[in-house]
Design a binder for these strands. Structure first.
Lengths: 186, 186
DNA sequence: CGTTAGTTTGAGAGGACTCAAAGTCTGTGG
DNA sequence: CCACAGACTTTGAGTCCTCTCAAACTAACG
């Protein structure tokens, strides 16, 4: 789905706001395995995944860790760095050839100074992100690797099919070998 | 510090808004070990800790888990349930006799329909909460129990002194016994 | 069809858990 | 002011999950 259509259906923004967002944004195709956004850069962009699958990742002690997967019709962008003015430790990689709409967040911020609706949109995105973190936290703290895999399998079976095992392992917080073992026993 | 003074210094809200928030809020003293908010209830209140220390907790498989500690000058309240309309799994307990200001979030929401500044306040609270979760997640995923304890010791040494070990252990995501062992060796 | 990335398998090690029991602290009633 | 009960903390033994290191497979791509 296209960004504007999505915003309209999910948030019911006025035509005028939609037009302004549309004008500020650009849509680009990223090849499979290409880097959409490097780690450790300043970036005030938000990416809307129109088509395809991307992963947000970062480096921790030299390892590549998957922070999150973003399939079609989702917003990706290092929340913290977009809202703060900090360097983002996160990078974004296209796992499939993907069509992304790049939205400069500064444009959203400008609109936000004059529109309550846009503020609500921002809050909705923040809240969604918060809920995601919260459930991730619970899962890491209380579930075994096995259970986490099982949940992913039930909730996002397509990701299992579309992303490399290594990326999934780091997303689940386990080593690739462990994931392999878990997957074998079933 | 009192809520209004805090809001003024941290967010620079207008006198008019401050007055409205003040009028909607009430301040109460909770005895040590008393329950400020039960788990599994609907609650649209936000609590500002003027004095004392409270912990937010929930039950997971029959165990009492500390979600977070809130010392003086911080806002407590089950973010997710305040913003959604869901039951909160979180409860709040006073670890010390504490003075709390209870703010009905509906009042904030009402003000938010007409004030960009209030929207920014809401976003700031959400963002802070997001950053907190994020660092918690990282810590759980990559640090050993030992390191997590060490960090808490460095960043919030007072909590170690003011809260029971069992509550701290569940906050760190380890058993009380393990925390005891870690604390002994050093 | 060979090179490289991705996945599986195995052995051994270590951290944290559980269950269990002993020891210490704290506050209340005598 | 002391003694005792209940809460809190420590210590120990044994177990299990997940990790690392290492090596063998397998699939993908030019």
């Amino acid at each position: 789905m296209q960004l504007i259509a999505y915003l309209q259906s999910a948030f019911g923004l006025s035509d005028d706001l939609l037009r302004q967002i549309d004008e500020a944004s650009t849509t680009k195709v990223f090849q499979k395995k290409s880097i959409v956004l490097d780690t450790d850069h300043y970036s005030k962009n938000v990416y809307f995944v129109q088509e395809g699958l991307v992963r947000m990742f970062y480096y921790k002690s030299g390892r590549d860790i998957t922070h999150y997967f973003f399939p079609e019709n989702s917003f990706s962008g290092g929340s913290e760095s977009v809202f703060n003015h900090k360097k983002s430790i996160y990078g974004i990689e296209a796992l499939e050839t993907s069509t992304l709409t790049v939205i400069p967040f500064t444009a959203i911020e400008n609109l936000a100074t004059g529109s309550i609706a846009i503020n609500k949109l921002i809050q909705a995105i923040l809240l969604e992100s918060l809920i995601g973190f919260s459930s991730r936290l619970q899962s890491l703290q209380f579930e075994t690797a096995q259970e986490r895999y099982q949940n992913l399998l039930e909730q996002h079976p397509n990701i299992l099919l579309r992303a490399p095992l290594g990326d999934i392992a780091s997303y689940l917080g386990i080593s690739q070998q462990t994931l392999s073992v878990i997957r074998a026993q079933k």
